[in-house]
Design a protein around this nucleic acid. Sequence first.
DNA 1: AATGAATGAGTATTCATTCAT
DNA 2: CATGAATGAATACTCATTCAT
Lengths: 211, 211, 211, 211
Amino acid sequence: MARTTGSNGEETKARIRSCALSLIADHGFEAMSMRRLAAAVGVQSAALYRYFPTKQALLAALMTGHMNQLLAAWAEAIPGDSAAPLTRLDAFARFHIRYHMARPHEVFIAYMELRSLSPVHYKAVGKLRSTYEGILKDILTDGSQCGDFQLDDVHVTAMAMLAMLTGVTTWYQPGGGLSAADVEAHYTALVCRMAMTDFTDTTELPQQAAR
Amino acid sequence: MARTTGSNGEETKARIRSCALSLIADHGFEAMSMRRLAAAVGVQSAALYRYFPTKQALLAALMTGHMNQLLAAWAEAIPGDSAAPLTRLDAFARFHIRYHMARPHEVFIAYMELRSLSPVHYKAVGKLRSTYEGILKDILTDGSQCGDFQLDDVHVTAMAMLAMLTGVTTWYQPGGGLSAADVEAHYTALVCRMAMTDFTDTTELPQQAAR
Amino acid sequence: MARTTGSNGEETKARIRSCALSLIADHGFEAMSMRRLAAAVGVQSAALYRYFPTKQALLAALMTGHMNQLLAAWAEAIPGDSAAPLTRLDAFARFHIRYHMARPHEVFIAYMELRSLSPVHYKAVGKLRSTYEGILKDILTDGSQCGDFQLDDVHVTAMAMLAMLTGVTTWYQPGGGLSAADVEAHYTALVCRMAMTDFTDTTELPQQAAR
Amino acid sequence: MARTTGSNGEETKARIRSCALSLIADHGFEAMSMRRLAAAVGVQSAALYRYFPTKQALLAALMTGHMNQLLAAWAEAIPGDSAAPLTRLDAFARFHIRYHMARPHEVFIAYMELRSLSPVHYKAVGKLRSTYEGILKDILTDGSQCGDFQLDDVHVTAMAMLAMLTGVTTWYQPGGGLSAADVEAHYTALVCRMAMTDFTDTTELPQQAAR
DNA sequence: AATGAATGAGTATTCATTCAT
DNA sequence: CATGAATGAATACTCATTCAT
């Protein structure tokens, strides 16, 4: 036999992508076999190679796809460079949390499977990641320069904020006592506190408090 | 050949542990083959099985070992429950950052390979993890109750802080412009800001700022 | 390489079966490695798993296949329940000897590798075996009831006859002084003697003779 | 450590033998690992090699041991060459059944694991086996010559009798409706019938019966 | 557009055996 | 007399991938 009647290339490709996301999120990229993926999609494994030349290419497609969509989504949601830094920071935090909580599979994979990428793809995804980090760093730099924020180090603060925000996917389970909106509000508040400055430098505080 | 002259069980076991840490950190647990591990240790793969009955058992030993050492190290470093919450929070943050920056392999594995654990081991490690999280939560709760901290939600804040602190291992490279002491200071400051309250509730700020 | 030009699934499967029969008969099931089997068939070991999911499944297929063919062959050769018991017994003995001498490999395996079967398969094969034993027991029972045979115990006699008849494969080598037809005649005669009764009960004879 | 206090060579050797008999009977020789055997005995596997230089040697020891004991036991039980052939046949049958039913493990192994023997050991065991078969053949020959038995072929008859008698171990389970004495009586009767002649040649009977 | 048949390299694990102690 | 540490070869089985159809 050959072509299954009624089969359609685009549809199959989309099914492969979504099945792969589930399987990788559940078992990890290395642990997902092309056979299992094919079974989930409902084709023979040989058919997968019509759409993605290698397993690596599939992972790369998933990850760059995710990063590109993330950047595109931000471009749409963007409040503009002209707004006040705190407004922009708040918007960024809300956007990030909301976007990530809605796509736990993609996010998990984007962070966990970086090491499974071949050097070439790793570099490409790294670039997209840097672009995204740049958005936050620009906001922090602007706020720092105009005096709205007081930060020890823009880079460190940005990395800390992103780790914190992205970390939500590792513990949040919908259906518990907290709504997604609650989480979004709490995390956004924490991010803003981290940037705001109206309190004495904390590196001295403990000693004071210990007095 | 049989027993190598001068070979010693305890030593071999330690070498297996440390080689496994490197290899898993670099390639992931699934991607580390027992053959490659044996080669790194300098024995035949069959020899590994004298020390760890399965690959799973090796991972579990590594992870529970790490968590137990972490808890033991804290118990030693502990400033006592009687100190002021902010002092204790500061101490916790510094301890966590310092401990984790010194053991990037263990930390990476402890967070990345949870899913590779079998259910039984997963549960065991989960318990140890909760114990550690409990330390921070207790500090936050105490600070909240005595009014030193003002927090929206102890659990959310604790999770956010831990993700942020632990995240340092994903980007920090010694030898850049930042010293480990700088990073420790910055992160500790951020943690304290997240707990301190002497500025208006940020959930309202953005709207104000957007005016 | 991939698919060999002109390769055909059914053919490969048949070749696997027949090579497996030879190898198991020669070395035993446990001692036959899938590698050696693959080499005998002329494929890579991985190819075997397209046809039989496990080594166990291959053994089970061989053994149930043998038993089913044996039962089918009898159903075809059957002289009918209406014939005289002695006629039927003679027919059974001839059939059994002839069938077994023609398939020494299958027979040897069917008796020797029972213990290598997993419990599930063991039970299935056991059922088929009982069905076959039932054929002989029915003949003996009928002959006993109509007085043609005089038997101490139908079950014991049936077991004894089957062990005797099947045992031929352990020593008979074609090309010696005895033809297969001779063996068939001799064994059939022995079976009939075991069932016939026109001589004094032998359990008393030795004592008499010993007098 | 070295010698376990109180350990004794002869005792250990005997324990190895008896544990090996159980394990081989249960799982087969190939499936019994020296490790499992050592565990059953309560020593390290290396210790086994003090008593048997290889796994093969252990099997050979078990099998030649069994055959030698069998022959020795017959020599003791022997009723003498002067008795009447039927008496001697009866005695042989009773002896064989009794001896074999009492040692199912040894018997099972002696018949099932012949193929696991290396050529050298196979030949040695084969010789002992032939000696034992010779006992029966002599009885049959004597009975044939003096006219007490009428046999088509001494060799075929002997083989048939031995297969039949030995087969008892494959189905008899003590504790059912049949006592060991019953089985002995039934089998002995069958053997005697096979040798006795006072009924028309059975090879012609079926045709008659089919009339 | 997809299948059915196959490959070759790899997996974790187990084996009988050895030898320094 | 026996152990503890190790070996080297083997085991059943799985993998990503290929290619004729």
